[in-house]
Protein backbone atom coordinates (compact mmCIF):
# COMPACT_ATOMS: atom_id res chain seq x y z
CA UNK A 1 0.00 0.00 0.00
CA UNK A 2 1.55 3.34 -1.01
CA UNK A 3 1.81 5.72 1.96
CA UNK A 4 3.70 9.00 2.40
CA UNK A 5 5.12 9.43 5.90
CA UNK A 6 6.67 12.88 6.37
CA UNK A 7 9.09 13.83 9.14
CA UNK A 8 9.30 17.46 10.22
CA UNK A 9 10.37 19.84 12.96
CA UNK A 10 13.72 18.13 13.46
CA UNK A 11 12.54 14.51 13.16
CA UNK A 12 13.97 14.45 9.63
CA UNK A 13 17.41 14.49 11.26
CA UNK A 14 16.70 10.96 12.47
CA UNK A 15 16.06 9.87 8.87
CA UNK A 16 19.17 11.07 7.02
CA UNK A 17 17.65 14.57 6.78
CA UNK A 18 14.98 13.31 4.42
CA UNK A 19 11.52 14.73 5.02
CA UNK A 20 9.17 13.16 2.51
CA UNK A 21 9.20 9.40 2.16
CA UNK A 22 7.16 7.72 -0.56
CA UNK A 23 6.99 4.13 0.56
CA UNK A 24 5.08 0.97 -0.08
CA UNK A 25 4.03 -0.94 3.00
CA UNK A 26 2.90 -4.54 3.01
CA UNK A 27 -0.32 -5.12 4.90
CA UNK A 28 0.40 -6.48 8.35
CA UNK A 29 -2.46 -8.91 8.82
CA UNK A 30 -3.77 -10.77 5.79
CA UNK A 31 -6.94 -8.65 5.89
CA UNK A 32 -5.43 -5.86 3.83
CA UNK A 33 -5.87 -3.36 6.63
CA UNK A 34 -3.18 -0.99 7.83
CA UNK A 35 -3.55 1.07 10.99
CA UNK A 36 -1.35 3.81 12.50
CA UNK A 37 0.05 1.36 15.05
CA UNK A 38 1.45 -0.70 12.17
CA UNK A 39 2.80 2.39 10.43
CA UNK A 40 4.59 3.61 13.55
CA UNK A 41 6.51 0.39 14.00
CA UNK A 42 7.25 0.27 10.26
CA UNK A 43 8.62 3.83 10.33
CA UNK A 44 10.66 3.08 13.40
CA UNK A 45 12.20 0.00 11.80
CA UNK A 46 12.66 1.28 8.26
CA UNK A 47 12.98 5.08 8.30
CA UNK A 48 14.46 6.05 11.65
CA UNK A 49 18.22 5.65 11.43
CA UNK A 50 19.25 6.94 14.84
CA UNK A 51 17.93 7.81 18.30
CA UNK A 52 14.52 6.10 17.97
CA UNK A 53 13.70 7.32 21.49
CA UNK A 54 13.32 10.82 20.02
CA UNK A 55 10.48 9.48 17.91
CA UNK A 56 8.71 6.87 20.02
CA UNK A 57 8.01 6.15 23.65
CA UNK A 58 6.39 2.80 24.39
CA UNK A 59 4.18 1.83 21.49
CA UNK A 60 3.23 5.38 20.53
CA UNK A 61 4.99 8.61 19.54
CA UNK A 62 6.99 10.51 22.10
CA UNK A 63 4.93 13.22 23.86
CA UNK A 64 5.45 16.45 21.94
CA UNK A 65 5.33 14.82 18.52
CA UNK A 66 2.26 15.98 16.62
CA UNK A 67 0.76 13.46 14.20
CA UNK A 68 -1.42 14.52 11.26
CA UNK A 69 -3.17 12.04 8.99
CA UNK A 70 -4.08 13.87 5.77
CA UNK A 71 -3.67 17.21 7.60
CA UNK A 72 -5.93 16.13 10.44
CA UNK A 73 -4.81 15.67 14.06
CA UNK A 74 -4.81 11.92 14.65
CA UNK A 75 -6.61 12.51 17.94
CA UNK A 76 -9.72 13.08 15.84
CA UNK A 77 -9.32 9.87 13.87
CA UNK A 78 -8.54 7.40 16.62
CA UNK A 79 -4.77 7.78 17.14
CA UNK A 80 -3.11 4.34 16.97
CA UNK A 81 -6.30 2.77 15.63
CA UNK A 82 -6.62 5.20 12.72
CA UNK A 83 -6.94 3.06 9.62
CA UNK A 84 -4.90 4.11 6.63
CA UNK A 85 -5.80 4.05 2.99
CA UNK A 86 -3.78 4.20 -0.18
CA UNK A 87 -1.82 7.40 -0.75
CA UNK A 88 -2.48 8.76 2.73
CA UNK A 89 -0.04 11.42 3.90
CA UNK A 90 1.04 11.06 7.53
CA UNK A 91 3.02 13.97 9.00
CA UNK A 92 5.11 13.71 12.16
CA UNK A 93 6.20 17.03 13.64
CA UNK A 94 8.46 17.30 16.64
CA UNK A 95 8.13 20.43 18.76
CA UNK A 96 10.64 19.42 21.37
CA UNK A 97 13.06 22.22 20.66
CA UNK A 98 11.45 24.86 22.79
CA UNK A 99 8.56 27.26 22.66
Amino acid sequence: MPITPTTNGGLELLCDSKKIHNVNIEQQNGEGKLIMKDLLSWVRTNLIKERPEMFMKGDTVRPGVLVLVNDCDWELSGQLDTSLEEKDVVVFISTLHGG
Binding site: L68, N70, D71, C72, D73, E75, L76, S77, T82, S83, E85
Partner: peptide, 26 residues
Protein backbone atom coordinates in the same frame (compact mmCIF):
# COMPACT_ATOMS: atom_id res chain seq x y z
CA UNK B 1 -11.90 15.59 -2.67
CA UNK B 2 -9.92 16.00 0.57
CA UNK B 3 -13.13 16.68 2.48
CA UNK B 4 -14.80 13.62 1.03
CA UNK B 5 -11.82 11.56 1.97
CA UNK B 6 -11.96 12.68 5.58
CA UNK B 7 -15.66 12.10 5.99
CA UNK B 8 -15.49 8.68 4.49
CA UNK B 9 -13.43 7.46 7.40
CA UNK B 10 -15.70 8.89 10.03
CA UNK B 11 -13.87 12.21 10.35
CA UNK B 12 -16.20 14.81 11.85
CA UNK B 13 -17.04 18.10 10.23
CA UNK B 14 -16.08 21.43 11.75
CA UNK B 15 -18.54 22.47 14.45
CA UNK B 16 -18.30 26.13 13.41
CA UNK B 17 -18.88 26.07 9.66
CA UNK B 18 -20.45 22.60 9.52
CA UNK B 19 -18.86 22.25 6.13
CA UNK B 20 -15.18 21.41 6.14
CA UNK B 21 -13.62 18.40 7.75
CA UNK B 22 -12.40 19.09 11.28
CA UNK B 23 -8.64 18.87 11.54
CA UNK B 24 -7.88 20.09 15.07
CA UNK B 25 -9.33 19.69 18.53
CA UNK B 26 -9.33 23.13 20.11
Amino acid sequence: GEGERGRKRGGRVCCVCNKERASVKR
